[in-house]
Nucleic acid binder design. Structure first.
Lengths: 173, 173
DNA sequence: TATTGTTATACTCTATAACTATA
DNA sequence: TATAGTTATAGAGTATAACAATA
């Protein structure tokens, strides 16, 4: 406090003399988190667009890579989305020969999802793109800072009950 | 490295023995940032829905509160959205008596935007909701950790060229 | 002719619910 | 009757482009 003036800190950690409601005095760190998260998501979407993939397609492909053989219902539950939404997404990947539906002979209602060889190869490309993306977003941080940030975010994610590896955007807004 | 096995760290910072592509081994911290950001945005949307506001309405109201008297074009530029989109948003706030368009007598094409008394009051409610939201998302962190997280996020936001106080969701995806 | 604000249109994404095929 | 998957429909949100008023 100087001269009775309250002091604030703007987005960038710089002290700012108090004045009624400035755009640089945001509601809080959670807003910063939301803004930065949207930015990161948009930049990632641009990168994977070069692979002709949308973010939901990418997430589904990763989920199938991680847990092959699951039914569409099971995947829908994991991702937190209606099963009807998966149909189109799986179609779009299957049409390109990245994913295949294997009917279960014992219960012909079930479609087990697997990656094809092309799908596996693309999954590895996605991982590489993810690393590039990570460097582009967090490049201004030292390795140690990056690790600290990751640890803090991980704590929050666990506390908030997020499913590891799943973007909550599959759920409503 | 133990026994030639690479070691990974999952979302929650726990070491994980290497195995081919697990959902718990995410592409990187930027993904965690995007996921957590979407979560925070969704939780905030729920809170302000109680004030009968959508996130874009809230952001616009905050922007007008911070820089009153601006034209819609100027605000569109600040928020990074087409001016045509502002029309409906301003309408929705003006119909509720939260915002008013004041014609400029010198140049009757211009509409200067201002908050009404009700709008000012709501802006303060929004700030309070923002603080509650912040506590709900970051409640598991100590004060010092929270400050450190904020500082790291602020560094990234500045490095990435985000406009302080503006959610990039006004821009495309 | 240029600019502010507005309207019209079309497109994308998504959830809900109805439908089919299998059980 | 119940479940997996699919299709149909409808709604929200948004960008693009045409338009009207004013300069």
């Amino acid at each position: 406090m100087i001269d009775g003036l309250e002091r604030f800190v703007n987005w960038y950690g710089r002290p700012v003399t108090a004045s009624p409601r400035r755009l640089e005095d945001p509601p809080g760190a959670a807003f910063l988190l939301a803004a930065l998260g949207a930015h990161a998501a948009a930049r990632f979407a641009e990168r994977i667009a070069a692979l002709d993939l949308t973010p939901p397609q990418t997430g589904l492909l990763r989920a199938i890579a991680a847990t092959p053989g699951q039914s569409q219902q099971a995947l829908a539950q994991l991702l937190g989305t209606p099963a009807s939404r998966l149909v189109g997404l799986v179609d779009s990947l299957a049409d390109r020969g990245l994913v295949e539906r294997r009917r279960n002979p014992a219960d012909r209602r079930l479609h087990a999802l697997h990656l094809t060889a092309d799908g596996e190869a693309l999954a590895e490309r996605i991982e590489a793109v993810g690393r590039e993306h990570d460097d582009a977003i967090l490049g201004s941080l030292e390795d140690e800072e990056r690790a600290r940030l990751r640890a803090l975010l991980a704590r929050i994610a666990e506390d908030q009950g997020l499913t590891p590896g799943v973007h909550p955007g599959y759920r409503r807004l």
